[in-house]
């Protein structure tokens, strides 16, 4: 499903963000990417989203080498992935419903499909009663749930979460992780970069640990493994 083959990323020649890393993620897996700040987690996510190009190596997603993708093909790559960020990135002047519907409008869904899918996804994330609220009227956890709903509404095969609990308190964080886990059980591959030790330790999922641009650990049922 996702394959990194000898991938390196260098900025300005001497700053090495990722050095010659290789790994493979199977369809339906749930993988944590952990490591201290500056270890290369963000770079890895950016490479997945083709926001940046690797300096060398190749990245294969859904059997396609995305480093060879043309610029105009990038949108279609991104449609196969749902993304959730630490800062939610919702549109402030659209309601919850509109924010989720927006992701469907972008890919050209019909109004009929939109009216059918959006309420379904909103109920999945437990926000059916907040459909008409604006993001500023919601708590942080609720906003992240909207952003999750938006990420999965087009039924992507991969969900990428970049520090999704970074701005949330522990209880709320757990709610979000449970939701992500729920999405994973429905067959979506999940890649989650995180700092949250408790969550990683409790979930007992595969952990890929990065340090100074290298993979220092890749365990099937791993733990966070760093002192806080």
């Amino acid at each position: 499903m996702i394959k990194f083959i000898n991938v390196s990323k260098r900025y300005n020649k001497d700053i090495i963000a990722l050095s010659n890393i290789s790994f493979e993620i199977e369809s339906g897996e749930f993988v944590f990417i952990v490591g201290p700040s500056g270890a290369g987690k963000s770079t890895l996510i950016k490479l997945l989203l083709k926001e940046e190009e690797p300096t060398s190596g190749s990245i294969v997603i859904n059997k396609k080498d995305i480093t060879k993708l043309k610029k105009r093909e990038i949108p279609y790559l991104r449609r196969s992935m749902g993304v959730v960020f630490q800062d939610f990135r919702l549109l402030p002047n659209k309601t919850v419903f509109e924010n989720v519907a927006f992701a469907m409008e972008v890919v050209g869904a019909s109004p009929k499909e939109i009216r059918r899918r959006v309420p379904m996804v909103l109920s999945l994330v437990g926000l059916s009663d907040k459909a008409d609220k604006y993001p500023r009227q919601l708590s942080g956890g609720e906003q992240q749930r909207v952003s999750l709903a938006r990420a999965i509404v087009n039924e992507p095969s991969i969900l990428i979460a970049d520090e999704p609990t970074g701005n949330l308190d522990p209880d709320t964080s757990w709610e979000i992780v449970k939701l992500i886990s729920e999405i994973n059980k429905r067959g979506t591959t999940v890649v989650m970069a995180t700092h949250a030790k408790d969550i990683v330790d409790a979930m007992k999922k595969r952990v890929i640990a990065l340090e100074k641009g290298n993979i220092v650990r890749d365990e099937a049922r791993g733990a966070y493994g760093y002192a806080l």
Binding site: R72, R78, R79, R89, F102, V106, V107, R150, N154
Partner: peptide
């Protein structure tokens, strides 16, 4: 945001 959702240019 539109770019991340996969909107074409």
């Amino acid at each position: 945001i539109m770019k991340y959702i996969g909107a074409t240019d």
